[in-house]
Design a protein around this nucleic acid. Sequence first.
DNA 1: CAGTGTGAAGTTGTTCACAGCA
DNA 2: TGCTGTGAACAACTTCACACTG
Lengths: 217, 217
Amino acid sequence: MANQGNNNHTARHGAVPMPTLRRLPGYLNYFKSLKINNVSYVSSSRIAGVFMMDATLVTKDLSYTGVRGKTKIGYNVDELIETMVSFLDFDSCDSAFLFGVGNLGRALINYQGLNQYGLKIIAGFDVDKNVINSSIKGVKIYGIDMFRDLSQTMAARIAIITTPGSSAQEIADLAVAWGVRAIWNFSPQSIKVPEHIIVENTSVYADLAVLLHRLNN
Amino acid sequence: MANQGNNNHTARHGAVPMPTLRRLPGYLNYFKSLKINNVSYVSSSRIAGVFMMDATLVTKDLSYTGVRGKTKIGYNVDELIETMVSFLDFDSCDSAFLFGVGNLGRALINYQGLNQYGLKIIAGFDVDKNVINSSIKGVKIYGIDMFRDLSQTMAARIAIITTPGSSAQEIADLAVAWGVRAIWNFSPQSIKVPEHIIVENTSVYADLAVLLHRLNN
DNA sequence: CAGTGTGAAGTTGTTCACAGCA
DNA sequence: TGCTGTGAACAACTTCACACTG
């Protein structure tokens, strides 16, 4: 397993549990909506109610980010947002290349929110002549063969793969060869990469399986 | 927590661990690719290699579905696929309404694969005059106001929410009122529903958070 | 009291160790 | 020997119990 080295934010004790990490963006979204509604303090039990979970778990989750609540009052919403954004590295805004400008790829490029969540797609790549040289929300789409040249002038640490599974491995190899350090793989295909490259798989089928299982049992 | 009652497939012992359930669709996809390449047997250690995980865990995962391997030979690929599909209820093909025909909604409708994974989108709904009455891959798009009537003549147990977060709750309420039993929520908003309604949240931000965290630590 | 914060207990998931089989 | 299969040990995560604070 990859090293879970201690981070240098505000948290002191060891690694953040992964389930915690996955819940934090949801909290953040909720905190933002509170801010819009001019709510300035929120308690863990209130948060727990919204997400239908145990209040203590919320407290534990928040404590990993280093934020402190005030007894009897709760947590300051502005402080929560600031801490959360910085803890999740949503403020640094990493650059990414996107491969496969199909419906899903287009959806990700169009997601204006992604910038707020630490990711900036700086170029798209595809094999389809109809989309090459077009522009989506200011993001230019290039032919795959252009990647070699562009990856020299435009730097990105992240590659997003939204191609069909059949070309996922090929794209991954290409991206790794040209210096990408992490791959966000939306294809259903499992990809092989060198030890030091980070791969994060996103599969809607996993969620669908859980949904159907709960529905049918 | 919802009842995890024993299922009536081949598995005998209690509930399937949720992490296992989430891994099964990935295995299934791999098994299908093996079949295409005319591979007829596969061992748990081989599977483990592809997914970079412990072989014993693969064995345990598979055993929950009731499939049995042959010592020294491994598991029969055809049998694996069949068992997996039936265990995950990917063969029954549940009907679903989709709300919010933006980029993501369109991506889901276009995903030809979804049918193979147990889900058939039978109608789309939106507020945008430009998409209402259009058709995507044979799926007709209606105005939200048409939902009341249509939900009487077209039955669906599942609602897919791909609207912006701001309208997610409203849509959820509507869907629940008209008899949907499960909601697949792609919006970043947490939604409140009656006890007996199943909600499955899919958020790309959770995965993104994990990716960025691993990259920056 | 109504809230945070935290060590301890409990639960769930993963890995280890080894039995059995062809 | 190379594989499945499984009970036991271990690790991770969540919940409980309770101290503390304004």
